[in-house]
């Protein structure tokens, strides 16, 4: 299976000058664990972990901190034409749960560890049904 077959195409994004409070609300409303930070091209990623680490633990006010102050800038990504196994290897090697899919300079999707487990679950069911 290729990355483009599994990825979510409806990627939720934020601007880097949005507040962390706005970003947290957008993540909550969409029931997702990260936002891609874009400014024409991929600028960074902001996750629940960043908020825990850099806001809650440091007792900072999320309405006073900008996304660019807590986002991860060096984002690891994958191409849509790669195999899902390769995406899984990248996630495993970098110990990340969310992998943006980039084609050229554009973010075209995202693949998460939950997606990987959903194929695992489907595969396990298929194997059992064949027995």
């Amino acid at each position: 299976m290729f990355v483009k077959e599994l990825m979510h195409r409806d990627v939720k994004t934020t601007a880097s000058d949005a507040t962390v409070l706005e970003a947290a609300r957008k993540m909550t409303q969409n029931n997702i664990g990260c936002l891609i930070v874009v400014n024409d091209t991929l600028e960074g990623i902001v996750t629940e972990r960043d908020m825990l680490n850099k806001i809650v633990s440091s007792s900072r006010d999320p309405s006073q901190v900008r996304v660019r102050d807590i986002m991860t800038r060096d984002v690891v990504s994958v191409s849509p034409d790669k195999d899902v196994e390769e995406a899984t290897d990248i996630m495993s090697k970098h110990r990340i749960k969310r992998l943006p899919v980039v084609f050229g300079n554009e973010v075209v999707g995202i693949i998460t560890s939950t997606d990987i487990v959903s194929i695992l679950s489907k595969a396990i069911r298929e194997i059992y049904s064949q027995q």
Binding site: K97, S113, I116, A123, I127
Partner: peptide, 18 residues
């Protein structure tokens, strides 16, 4: 989920082979 997805790329490879 992270354990399953990250620690088990081998499992995924075996499953996709099957």
């Amino acid at each position: 989920v992270a354990d399953l997805a990250m620690v088990q790329p081998e499992l995924i490879k075996r499953i996709s082979a099957i």
